[in-house]
Computed example of a mutant assay.
Amino acid sequence: MVTRTFDRAPSTAPLMLKAVLPAIPVIGGLPGVKHAKGTVPDIVLERKGVETDPKHLETYNEVCGFPRGDHLPTPYPHMAAFGLHMSLMTDTAFPFAPMGLVHLRNTIRQHRRIGVAETLDVSVHAADLRPFPKGSLVDVITEVSVRGELVWEEVMTLFSRHKGGSAETSPAPLAGVEAPDGVVHWKLGGDLGRRYGSVSGDRNPIHLYPLTAKAFGFPSNIAHGMWTLARSLSAVQNKLPEAFTVDVEFRKPILLPGTVVFGSRADGKDLVFGVKGAKKPITHLVGQIVAHA
């Protein structure tokens, strides 16, 4: 395994351009642009000594609905890792062109709350390339440590659509789990994708404007899945334990602008939550929180 260390966050603007190139006819097949197939890259990308910018955190909290506090919101370390994610996925050793990927599932394991003033060491690698109906899945794994203590982990499961594929060999984490009904309505503006994209660095064209989203087959721009996850966790912030695992599945994109409904329910010791359409009972996201023993 080769380790690449970054002394600062990779700039996401050139990486977004690099992500688009493989989707362009002819150019996408050129050496240095075309992605390899069949294996995950044998590399780890890392940053050490990552400090939280209070202004950035404040903006993130505002966009995602978190209150101010002494600890980072559970999804916030994803922000520190995003540049590494993009560097990994735009590497031609990564098995799929990033613009064709669908963020299908996400798992975060919070081993303990992370203080705002704590310094983070972040590492990212890919794993578990496997078949899936009509394509393949691959995991992008992030680990965050504080002074050698593993405090936070994330698994982003990405779907690449292509010919072939087969059924998964193991059940999905949320197989059979349905989003509960709710009464809390969120009215989402057409600029939500741009607002979250500005704070996260994820300026994928499908999130920005109707015109740029239509170029990739969407009728309008769509909300980021990680925003929907973050907004959901902010809605149950007072119910979150010190240490827990949250699994989510992104089932249908949220078109912007629009209104969605959030709901949650206790399921024994677990908490199940979800986001549905306000006009049609379409499930956009379903999630489950399990406290660690």
Rank of each mutant, 00 (worst) to 15 (best):
L211G: 13
P180G: 07
G258T: 12
I254Q: 03
A223T: 10
A167P: 00
N204F: 02
S198P: 04
Y196C: 01
A215L: 14
S264P: 02
V248S: 11
L158T: 10
G190C: 12
P205F: 13
S170P: 04
K187I: 15
V261D: 02
E249P: 02
E249G: 07
E242S: 12
P205L: 15
L192S: 10
H185M: 15
T169M: 14
E168S: 08
L188I: 15
L255P: 01
P219Q: 05
S166C: 01
G165K: 07
G197T: 07
L256M: 00
L229P: 11
A266C: 08
S170E: 15
R203A: 13
G182K: 11
P210M: 06
G225R: 06
R194P: 12
W186H: 08
V248E: 04
V248I: 10
L240Q: 07
D191I: 12
T169E: 09
S264A: 12
V177I: 04
L256T: 01
G197F: 10
R251W: 07
G217E: 07
A223K: 10
V260R: 03
L208S: 08
F159M: 09
F244C: 10
G176H: 05
L208Y: 08
H162W: 13
P180M: 02
R161T: 15
S198F: 09
A175P: 02
L240V: 06
L211M: 11
P171M: 00
S200F: 08
P253K: 14
L158W: 08
L240F: 06
R203V: 12
N204I: 13
T212G: 09
A235C: 07
L174F: 00
S198K: 15
A179L: 10
G197D: 09
Y209L: 13
A243C: 09
F159Y: 14
H185D: 11
L158S: 13
S200A: 05
R231N: 03
S160T: 14
V260K: 07
G165A: 14
